[in-house]
Write a protein that binds this DNA or RNA. Structure first.
Lengths: 328, 328
DNA sequence: CTGAAAGCGCTTACAG
DNA sequence: CTGAAAGCGCTTACAG
């Protein structure tokens, strides 16, 4: 591989000059520049990114930590993240954590080792203090989750309000017994969604039954299992709200397996508005989250941090929308 | 940030020695080693990956080029690729090309610039010769597609045989008019699938009607549109084979919209066995592809190349399986 | 077992 | 406008 020195020799100039045409910095005599350009072309020269990185003390790489890329939610999120990054001249390192806190920390270490310039976190699975310790090595931005003390910039939706919308929609449809299948309760988003659900029941004077609140795992199978449990209750719910679309699909399957109809016997609502919500029969009523946009704005936030801009509003809240379809 | 020199000073040794304990190379006096380790801990030292990379002339980074990460097919593929890479100490740079040949070439340039050690290509969207030119800078392995002349290592399935299976299955079910909705015909996999379809019709003495072969775009909407076209044919098909599951879902929707039933009036088959094939009603008969495994083996192939192993069998063919469900 | 020195391939003040 | 020199933070023969 030719180096900058080879180009310099061929063009009859110094490395400095070649570097200057490479970086478009300072003024370079047009004629000299042409000679250098010609030499580069002839040698098929490409500057070494690694050398450049070492010198400039940056990598133009962003670590994106996600639980699992085959989950369509994270697929869309990553698309948004990547689009912005690439436009700004950065590339993305995909870091699948599988929800494992240890792997999450290992990936955060890439910041210490200067392997990446910044980190996007889509799931906070470690004590906040442990994560914050890495901030001395570079910026960290949250996408879709947030830190309770807002110590990290974050782009989110208002999960409380979204869950209120859903619950209210069901109540206004006449439902009084509404089951809730949440995601893992250590996730802040899930606590928020549950809070929205509970608050709305209380607002309408509907007693909150703790038998009607279950913790799922965000999978179809999990939703299926929880739904079966709810349907065996003495006070069977007439509506079930699942904290994501996959679980809601599992709920529909469980309801139908019992010979019941959706929505006539049991209404079902999901959350996220991913593709399957429009494939399942009946089509799912769900909360439309601007997933791609969350990714876009989170990466924009991170880019601002890298440019040294100090952020004022650390939490950006995007709008959601209740999509009413056939399942309610 | 502390550098290796800071550690050396604190431990009262030379940089060389610190480096040796860092790389576990040669013998280092156990006592010296302890001193160095202590100094590293005290300074919270992490070696700079960039410096190491420049020195060792490697990056431990692999570029993974995919059309679109929010497509679940590529989600699974990437999971397989990543798992192996991480186990071998590599990280993955996600490079979404959106099927754009120009972006594909731009990402291949990362190989020239020494930004990555190798490349995984999941879609060949440029003249093969143009891609092969990059081989001088590092290995390139194909996952799920292949090069006609086998000049690049590849992990694939036998698309011809899989399509034969599907077509034969439909014929044995009594279908004589079988529509085929293919993906874009410049894709080699699509040409193979079509060949399997055509060959099987011919084998059973069924005339091949070119009105019954349409080119879709691998989306639900595309499948929907093509299906409508097929259903308006004079000789309406009694079965439709779509080259992926998304399009097959679109087909089911189109059939049902016409007031027809699947499979009684029109049987439908997909390809890939992604999640929606088990969500759509009726559940989709489809070809199960070992997507994750394709990723695993492709990355293993690339790792072999990086270790300097010369590959003999350049094309690895994995088994598929016809999943017969409710739609046929 | 350990250190001094060279070098990976760039960029950037500093002179001129 | 251009060049010589230093330096980014490591690793690795080469001596000893």
């Amino acid at each position: 591989m030719p180096t900058i020195l080879d180009v310099a020799k061929k063009a009859g100039v110094s490395r400095s000059t070649v570097s200057r045409v490479l970086t478009n910095s300072n003024r370079v005599d047009p004629e000299t520049k042409q000679k250098v350009l010609a030499a580069m072309k002839e040698l098929n020269y490409q500057p070494s990114q690694v050398a450049r990185n070492l010198r400039k003390q940056e990598t133009n790489l962003i670590a994106v930590l996600i639980p699992c890329i085959s989950n369509p939610f994270f697929g869309s999120l990553v698309r948004g993240l990547e689009e912005v990054a690439v436009n700004k001249g950065y590339n993305i390192i995909l870091c699948s954590t599988g929800e494992d806190p240890i792997r999450q920390i290992e990936y955060l270490r890439m910041l210490e080792r200067k392997q990446v310039d910044g980190v996007i976190l889509t799931a906070l699975r470690n004590p906040l203090e442990e994560v914050k310790a890495f901030l001395q090595h570079g910026p960290i931005v949250l996408a879709s989750e947030y830190a309770e003390d807002d110590s990290l910039p974050a782009v989110v939706i208002d999960n409380i309000r979204a869950a209120e919308h859903v619950t209210e929609h069901l109540i206004l449809k006449g439902h009084k017994r509404i089951g809730f299948i949440n995601g893992p309760e250590h996730i802040i988003l899930c606590r928020d969604r549950q809070r929205g659900y509970v608050q709305t029941l209380e607002k309408y004077g509907i007693p909150v039954s703790h038998d009607s609140i279950l913790c799922g795992d965000f999978t179809m199978e999990g939703g299926f299992g929880c739904a079966k449990q709810l349907l065996q209750l003495e006070e069977k719910p007439s509506a079930i709200f699942a904290a994501n679309d996959e679980m809601a699909v599992g709920v529909i399957q469980a309801v139908q397996e019992q010979g019941l109809r959706v929505p006539q016997d049991v209404a079902v609502v999901g959350f996220d508005n991913v593709q399957i919500s429009r494939v399942v029969q009946p089509n799912l009523t769900t909360i439309d989250q601007p997933i791609f946009q969350i990714g876009v704005q989170a990466m924009e936030l991170l880019m601002s941090c890298l440019e040294g801009i100090v952020l004022k509003d650390k939490r950006i809240v995007l709008e959601t929308n209740l999509c009413i379809r056939e399942s309610t």
